[in-house]
Amino acid sequence: MPEPTETVPTPSVPEPLPEMVPAPEPSRQRWFLRFTLAQRYLHAVLFTTFLVLAATGMVMRFSGSVWAIRLARQVGGFGAILFFHKFCALLLTLAFLIHVRDVLARGVFHREKGIFWGSTSMVANWKDVKDLFAHFRWFLGLGPKPQFERYAYWEKFDYWAVFWGMVVIGFSGYAMWFAPFFARFLPGWALNAALIIHSEEGLLAILFIFAIHFVNTHLRPDSFPMDYVIFTGRESEEEFKQRRPLEYQRMIAEGRSATRITDAPPKWLINFSRVVGFTAILIGLTLLVLALSAYFVG
């Protein structure tokens, strides 16, 4: 279908803007929607419950350390720690189920394209493998920077790591919570295994999110100090073009930019994002330091 009204200058292949040219005025800047409100809420529930689960889980995992015992006392002892852990586990399970239902509804019932396969899907494809190698070549100065689609390979990894993590941690957690019930189907030693799997996978999640995800998504020079898109849902045209040129070009080519265009993020939302985001990052980095010190120092 033709799109004659498309007026956006085609972003002929990345030619760095000369330093002298001033950035487009904010009022003239166009903004595109990357994440829907529902997706942003999902992320908010995910990271809020994850922070609490991580904090309380680490207190249990490293229950011999001084800070764990102090923290437990501060919040009312072990009973409170386990209560918060289970409460957030239930919330996160609920969010997980809503997400799965949403994906199935879009992909299976509404037959929406690009959910399970294609350039907008979260499912990994051959291009992701090529992007990974190309990215490494670019790191080493051996090639051009790869052009990414809607979800880059490391973003897909983040997604599936969390997805797999929730299944594994959730299942082993519920097995311990309702041990006598699960023992009807599982051998007794599976309960031993559940604790090992739960705590190791939990530690992996903590280290990965707070050390890798934070840097890749928020703290690296391009996004520093934080990528607000997951909080505001919007990104500027310039960011869009620069970060995911393939998706941008496809959108222009398909003439669908009008469906994605949105208003600039309101000031309050940016400020709110700042407060929430920095709080989360601060808590996360604190937990990272505690986890590393407890793991290596003992």
């Binding site: 249990m60 229950s63 002892g77």
Partner: peptide, 9 residues
């Protein structure tokens, strides 16, 4: 044991 150490549980 892990639980037992915390806050005198």
């Amino acid at each position: 044991s892990q639980l037992g150490l915390l806050g005198g549980y």
